[in-house]
Amino acid sequence: MAEMDPGTLITLVTIVGSTLGIVLGALTPAIVEGRAVLKALEGMTRQPEAAGDLRTTLLISMALLESTAIYVLLVILVLIFANPVIDRFFPGG
């Protein structure tokens, strides 16, 4: 632990950071989407005639909520497969 190769250090930080990031990025949208589905189901049971409108709105808002998780995934994919920091410090490596 005394002397660590900078490449190893960057890789280690990347892996730990990606794991933490995907945990948070999956957890938060899941909770929020669950609340959205809960409210929509409540509305559907209370007013079944409005179920069609609610379903369309629910799908669109779920897609909007889901996109935050997708952003996290994209950043992590870039970190793992095309890490710009490693390219800067170790060109060609």
Binding site: A63, E66, S67, I70, Y71, L73, L74, L77
Partner: peptide, 13 residues
């Protein structure tokens, strides 16, 4: 941008 990235990210994942 979000319209494009959403479709790409979902298919890729």
């Amino acid at each position: 941008v979000s319209l494009a990235v959403r479709l790409f990210g979902n298919v890729l994942s």
